[in-house]
């Protein structure tokens, strides 16, 4: 499963309609604020087995995925 697909799976737990999500989708457009992004990153720590320091401020799912990939690699 790609990082994008794994993130979409986590987003599904946030009552987000996942069918139409693309890397360009902004968090704002799916009703997730900066606090929710922090919480989702925390859940990704468990999913990906890494520790993430949130200094970035990803606006889109694509940016979020890129951030994760840079840490996992």
């Amino acid at each position: 499963m790609s990082t994008f697909e794994r993130v979409v799976k986590i987003l599904a737990e946030y009552d987000v309609e996942t069918d139409a999500l693309t890397p360009e989708t902004t968090f704002e457009s799916i009703g997730l604020d900066s606090l929710a992004i922090v919480e989702i990153l925390m859940n990704c720590e468990d999913e990906f087995g890494v520790e993430i320091e949130l200094e970035e401020n990803p606006k889109t799912i694509g940016e979020f995925v890129a951030l994760l990939d840079s840490i996992v690699d």
Binding site: L35, A36, V38, E39, M42, E45
Partner: peptide, 10 residues
Amino acid sequence: PRKVSPFMVP
């Protein structure tokens, strides 16, 4: 500490 929810305070 990193497991404490960002929603805890609000």
